[in-house]
Write a protein that binds this DNA or RNA. Sequence first.
DNA 1: CTTACATTTCAACCAATACTGAAATTTAAA
DNA 2: TTTAAATTTCAGTATTGGTTGAAATGTAAG
Lengths: 160, 160
Amino acid sequence: MEKDTKYKAKLDYVESLGMFFETLGLPRMAGRIFAWLLVCDPPHQTAAQIAEALGASRGSLSTNLRLLSHFKMIDKICKRGDRSAYFVCRPDSLIDATANKIRFFDELKKLLQKGIGILEAEPFESADRLKGTYEIYDFLEIELLRALENYYKNFNRDSE
Amino acid sequence: MEKDTKYKAKLDYVESLGMFFETLGLPRMAGRIFAWLLVCDPPHQTAAQIAEALGASRGSLSTNLRLLSHFKMIDKICKRGDRSAYFVCRPDSLIDATANKIRFFDELKKLLQKGIGILEAEPFESADRLKGTYEIYDFLEIELLRALENYYKNFNRDSE
DNA sequence: CTTACATTTCAACCAATACTGAAATTTAAA
DNA sequence: TTTAAATTTCAGTATTGGTTGAAATGTAAG
């Protein structure tokens, strides 16, 4: 009974944590899965175990586990003589998610350059608005990438 | 004819730029409006003018102009003896949008602390996974906020 | 090869959200 | 106060995207 209460509390917690990961741009279920893998025991789980814990369908698990694998937010682990696949989360991947968002600034900058080209011919100051916007993202991107670099340096990470 | 072509190119450009602003978490139409206000001439426009340019309904304009005003991404300007309201974009607001996202890390950190409390009693290492995640966001938040501070310092902004 | 279990795919359903258009309301001029 | 123009509200509609469950496929053991 004690244990049941604790387990339920854990599931509630997974729910709220999952909602947060959803805001990273993931489907809700993918957020839940990642949250579950962050707190479950043992740390590696089969799709069936996760489905059971979250009360979700196998289909949804399959789809979202593939998604999370694709984004390298989880690892898929297989063993000889075992037809189950096991999944583990990679907490570090959250940094990469952030890094990708910052790199996205680059696309915007390109787009703004294009716009400046289009508007420069016009006699109005509209190009200035775009130039101002460009300045903002240019500076922010540099600063934020520097921040990330510090992170990598500080935590002695070796890849990506 | 020349002019029509240019105008159409501008509208296409607004469309792609708008798609970008959508990724900030805005409704698509709000993104379009902000993009339009970034390139239009004159820089201040009535809801009717924007609706005309974007081919959108008045209702949608009303809703999304209110939204953008609420987030301080645009200003609403009224004049005595004129029942129209005029709207102008605030390009600087994009910084604040970024800043708010970073502050959002704070909520996650609180949530992670809560989880660490829940799991600490358990004999497993699951709390360690959460602690690792906490470290990541704690460091990132500090670095990113430092980056923003640099921005404000550099561009001599006076508010927020 | 066959059986048993595990995973993936996919069509149908469902929920969330945005957009429209018309009616109601507000605002300024007559 | 009445009229005209602009804005807001809101019910209905469309669209998007996620989830389910069952059928198909894959995989290891017997």
